[in-house]
Amino acid sequence: MLAIPVESDSPGTMSTKLFGNAKFFAFVDPLTKQSTIITNEGCGNGIQTANYLLERGATSAVYGFLGDGPFHVMVRGGMSVYWLGSETMALSEAIDVSLTQSLVRVTPENASEYLDPGTAAGACECGCTHG
């Protein structure tokens, strides 16, 4: 399942920029493109969000802004992580873009180029220890 952070649980929702602060995630079946929107029980904390997605069975995720801590939790958990870009888009567009295989896969080797927590200080604020 592909996890996409979204703004609301209503039809026609948009992707959202901040991964850990996303109130909802669309879980998308890559074979059918069908999505189910779930409430993010880890909202407000990137590490808790990453763990929640793993618990719910996500195998990949996309993001606009993401810190080191949640990224490493997902990668260590076996998830593939892709940079969606820093602009929001309609969920239907985010699904199409995500499934075209054209997004950059973020790995520990290229993470410094693509990770940005999107906070005012430019640093992760989830309280985790990175590494």
Rank of each mutant, 00 (worst) to 15 (best):
P70Y: 13
P70L: 14
T129K: 14
G85A: 02
F65R: 06
A94L: 12
V28Q: 04
S112I: 09
D68E: 08
A121P: 00
I38E: 12
E93Q: 09
G69C: 11
Y82F: 10
I47G: 11
M89H: 01
N51I: 02
P11Q: 11
Q34S: 14
T13S: 08
A3E: 15
P11V: 04
T16K: 12
V73M: 15
T88M: 10
T100S: 15
C124H: 13
Y82W: 04
I47S: 13
F19Q: 08
G131V: 11
A90C: 15
I37S: 11
F65N: 03
V81W: 07
K33F: 14
F65E: 00
V62I: 06
G85L: 02
E125Y: 15
S112L: 06
T107G: 15
P70W: 10
Y52T: 01
G42Q: 02
T107P: 14
G44W: 03
T32F: 09
G42I: 00
T32L: 07
S92F: 04
I95P: 00
N110S: 03
T129W: 14
L18D: 06
T129Q: 15
G46V: 00
V6Y: 10
A123I: 14
R76V: 00
G127F: 06
L115A: 05
M79W: 10
F25K: 12
A120V: 08
G122A: 06
L54I: 09
V106C: 08
T59S: 04
F71C: 01
G20S: 04
A121C: 04
S35R: 12
V106Q: 08
A50P: 09
S98M: 02
P70I: 09
N21L: 09
G44Q: 05
A123T: 14
G44N: 05
E93Y: 05
T129R: 12
E113L: 03
L115Q: 08
A121M: 05
N45F: 09
F24C: 13
G69E: 10
G85R: 04
L84W: 08
E55G: 03
A94T: 07
L99F: 00
E87Q: 07
S86V: 12
M74P: 03
A22N: 03
G20T: 05
L2K: 10
Y114H: 04
Y114C: 00
G46H: 05
P5A: 02
S8Q: 07
V81Q: 06
A22Q: 06
V6A: 11
G42R: 02
G122K: 10
S80P: 04
G127N: 08
